[in-house]
Design a protein around this nucleic acid. Structure first.
Lengths: 235, 235
DNA sequence: GCTCGTCAAGAGCGGTGCTCTCGTTTTCTG
DNA sequence: CAGAAAACGAGAGCACCGCTCTTGACGAGC
């Protein structure tokens, strides 16, 4: 890539890359909190203090891993979206969702680093806000394109679950919500995950003042989800 | 409460309570990973090794905090539900959602302990599965009651956002999704949080084999959300 | 009154992030 | 090409961590 002016710079870039690689591997086995510069140094046959020539602190290494993570997730999402026909907006949305899930399941610890509990004492620097929204940008692009194409209308009739799926939902949740048909159970599941997804975003700082009054927006979302489930009053 | 047979047992119960209290306070300032038995001991004027007479390991103290957390959240949800008229099912759902959000915002570190990244190396024992589903039990009760009362129909027309709310949504997300009306943006936000809520549940082990084929259920949820947003194909 | 279990204290083990110094090696400059 | 300057690895050291083991004091029950 770079013409690597001096030999020193070349070996420096190589070692930096190796540190990141080992750190990511260690992240996968020990978790975000268990990331240890000493262990990285040990695995490289270095002495611990030498690592600090490459990353001034553990947090800087963490920042690099976070940025790499957001970029990897973003790329996966972008690839999934690009592989779907442009006018198939429901398909593009579905593809994006599966891309997120597949990536997260393949890299659970990196996902935890991005969307789990914030690392105590760690403050994400400004460099992360670009890569952080790559998935959102894709999502926004789909919606905006659908709007331009006139393919974004009022809420459509929600698709019904097949009998197999409805049966599995009933089998899993029958003791918790007896008598509720599987179709409703599946919509309820979406509402439930939306609730905790919102709360996690807000508590873990993913919103960062996106709205003036989070509570108001949340309240409306909740009511939308209630209607989606089909809840009505009874006399 | 207990007749506290011996003085020794009484002081032991008191000290145990004090340890938990200090640990919870420490959780709020240092985060879940920064929970330190030594620091707890220091704050109590004890020597570190003495703590192990009360909690055999750091993980046991953590388990206690987790169970207490689930119970606190569960109680808050139960209270919110009980305070709403029985037949007002949309209101009960809304109350539950706000209870979850309010509790989480008031106790962010405890929420992180429950729904954030799993603590590395920590395996939750069986004792946690009871308190863990208290909120879900409430939610299930609402749905089941609505079903019995005949108040659980097909998805209702989604409520429209007022102009103020729609305007705020447009202001916040206009650069990301230009041209999309605020009403759709708000529904899209629910879909987005539902996606990440699902993935977080699955990655962080909250599902624990609830379904035979997570991917199938997920795929259906995603399509429901797509329809809720109003996405359709364009020629 | 004596035994036995409970307890706090202390030392110690191996681990962590991070700092500082020291001698070497590489690069840049005169 | 020689010398100054920068970069580097190694090592010692600081304060902290979870956890274990031993020791000596204390109180409850026989």
């Amino acid at each position: 890539m770079t013409a690597s002016r001096t030999a020193r710079e070349r070996v420096r870039a190589e070692l930096t890359r190796e540190i990141i690689e080992i750190a990511r591997r260690q992240l996968a086995t020990e978790g975000a909190g268990g990331l240890s510069l000493r262990a990285v140094a040990r695995e490289m046959g270095m002495v611990s203090s030498a690592i600090y020539r490459y990353f001034p602190s553990r947090d800087d290494l963490l920042t690099t891993l976070i940025i790499d993570g957001y970029n990897a997730l973003g790329e996966a999402v972008e690839r999934a979206d690009a592989a779907t026909p442009e006018g198939d907006f429901p398909g593009r949305w579905t593809a994006v969702c599966h891309a997120v899930r597949d990536w997260a399941l393949a890299h659970p610890h990196e996902y935890a680093l991005l969307y789990g509990s914030p690392v105590p004492g760690y403050q994400a620097p400004q460099d992360t806000i670009g890569p952080r929204v790559r998935d959102l940008v894709v999502f926004g692009g789909i919606l905006a394109a659908a709007q331009r194409a006139g393919a974004l209308g009022p809420a459509a009739a929600l698709p019904e679950a097949g009998p197999a799926l409805a049966g599995e939902a009933e089998a899993s949740l029958a003791d918790l919500m007896p008598g509720v048909p599987g179709d409703v159970l599946l919509r309820a599941l979406s509402a439930w995950t939306s609730l905790y997804g919102w709360v996690s975003f807000e508590v873990f700082g993913q919103f960062q003042g996106a709205f003036q009054d989070n509570r108001l927006v949340f309240d409306h979302s909740v009511k939308v989800l209630g209607a989606m489930m089909g809840l009505t009053r009874s006399g």
